[in-house]
Design a protein around this nucleic acid. Structure first.
Lengths: 204, 204, 204, 204
DNA sequence: TCCTAAGCGAGACGGTACGTCTTGTCTTCCA
DNA sequence: TGGAAGACAAGACGTACCGTCTCGCTTAGGA
């Protein structure tokens, strides 16, 4: 049986308050322009207390980011997995829905307000998700193209599409965006999944 | 005729020294970790002099970045333009060659060491280039998909592909990377350029 | 009858441990450089417990100092009193013996390591002792010089003599120091005690 | 010719402002209770600037104390020297006049508000002065008592007399205090100076 | 060729934020 | 139930960097 490390509830409350304060501040100004002082004032926490929990501002961010993106992945992965299992077409709109529902957060990340660490962690999360999916789809054969390239390609294209979407005031509904994006990546991904080596070898 | 403002040569030398010092430092540590002090020491320039030319570190970066990316665009654009004019297949490997020739710089930018401003400016440069190209190719008709989406899609996919490439030790030659990437975006881009509305309307 | 406040023995042990820890620390570093943290660690006491007993570091010191100097006075006074009663010459070496026996303590106090509070309390203790003695000796007449001046003069001279002694490695035996010091203050003190007004009024 | 080290006038002004601020504050609260923040606010100086000049509060104090006490010694020494040269009686009232003219300062030092460092430096200054004087007076013979003891004895007695004087509202004029003090130390000091070994050897 | 305005290095300064330390309060847990 | 443990707010510490400001020296480019 796991010996549950007993943690003072106050600690959790303090850490949560600090991270929420950081997120709040990041929605209104650039990550680089936020000071520890700003964070503890927003969170109503003593400055020394901050340093009891985190080494610095980056530590606060990355420590909680991990959990945050694990959480995001956990929301998306089962839906993808389920579709793959059922042989259904991939519900590509779920990632656009996720972005829409947390639009300020994703806008902050994708427009660079959050600093490069956040951007990279999101990029990595999405890449990993698609690597799993692609791996699952081409099981049993060898892809003519390295899976890493494919995963990066899909992740890069979906994120840049979302970035455009959020920057253009999110006029279109997520279903439309998902459909457009699917149109764009579908042909080549189908070929890869079909292990259509002819496709790969023919002249471009 | 343009009235050429006569500028002391020392001024240009100072500015150049400062920007080069910044670039040098960015190759070895994160942009956020570089101080004005570091820059002026690296450049052998008095600290007060720095402020005669630039408001702050960001100002030094963005002022020179503009020129730098205009320069990059200027290297790439004519080749693309020439290919389009001649009706030849797009020489997609030129952008991979560019990346390979300045690998440390691009690696710094794409892995986030350079901060989000540099990343965004590169992204924007590439997006603008492809917007031009796409615009030129579909001239005379209307794309079923907004050009902005297409440009972002192409730029996002090429940059994420390059990112993967540079992070995986740049094993493959640029020609190979260009070929792979072309395979991936070719089908859908062809359809768009052909104004193949059937393609767009058929079920995905 | 005094209502003896019943105090838990543990409380006394805690307080004693704290004061002893402070004294120990004061022998090795300046009072100003000692923190409450240092004291409770040295005493193996919880920090919160410290504040149950004392307001702060100064409180700990002064509360116990009182008792300490009352104790010192209690050791010296009876000997002085006895000599006065018996009309014997004052055993001035007892104060030098006291200093020698607790040399580290007195050295700490007189060289200023203990902060000014301790120094002043010692000074006051010795002054009070001599005021008593002088008062007793000149009983029945009026001193031409205020007793306060005399007591301060005697106390100041004996303490500075001890200070010199302890700082010069305590080479001489206490008897020698006492004898020398007596030589120095004897003539004028004799005159005062004899109420020798001629002495006071003659040209100096 | 001495190459006069060129020092920015601002530096001197800054240092002087800081020391004066400290002295001002020391007249109204205990040295230990004064923070660097207090000092720089009183002096209207940036806190970082403080650290350009001094390591800490103690450094500010001791650095300037040296000059201050050298100054005090310089005021007193020539008068003593002159009297010795001329074979005149020592003008013992000059030290009491000095104390009266700077009463707040000396009161602060002698009552311990200034911390032990200041007290000790004053003590040492006075002791050194009297050592010189005594040395000069007994030239040509050997004192039966070490000069160190004598100097400490005289310094200790004069300072404790001044302390009593300043604490008792400085009622008496300095001439009176000087006369009383002279009465007290005169007999034994005369004997020492006369090399009156009989005095030293006879039974006390 | 000189001279004069500028660019520049040096560095003092006021200020802000940092990360650390200590203080005194308060809460939780344990014996 | 009282003490140990330790979370916490408050705030001073000494350091680092910022952006501003003189102060002289040097030097380019017009006279």
């Amino acid at each position: 049986m796991v010996e549950q490390k007993k943690v003072d509830r106050r600690i959790l409350r303090t850490r949560q308050a600090l991270f929420e304060a950081l997120l709040d501040l990041m929605l209104e100004k650039r990550y680089a322009d936020i000071s520890v002082r700003d964070i503890v004032e927003q969170a109503n926490i003593g400055r020394a207390t901050f340093y009891l929990h985190y080494k610095d501002k980056d530590d606060l961010l990355t420590s909680n980011l991990e959990a945050m993106f694990v959480d995001i992945a956990a929301r998306i992965r089962p839906l993808l997995r389920q579709a793959i299992m059922g042989g259904q077409p991939l519900p590509s709109e779920i990632i656009f829905r996720e972005a829409q529902q947390n639009a300020p957060l994703y806008r902050m990340i994708l427009t660079g307000q959050g600093g490069s660490a956040v951007w990279h962690r999101l990029y990595q999360t999405i890449t990993d998700l698609y690597r799993e999916v692609i791996q699952a789809l081409i099981v049993g054969g060898d892809s003519p193209i390295e899976v890493g390239i494919l995963a990066n390609y899909v992740a890069g294209s979906v994120l840049s599409t979302i970035k455009w979407w959020l920057e253009s005031d999110t006029r279109h509904p997520p279903e439309y965006m998902a459909a457009v994006w699917k149109k764009l990546i579908q042909p080549s991904m189908m070929a890869v999944v079909m292990l259509d080596n002819d496709w790969y070898e023919q002249e471009g």
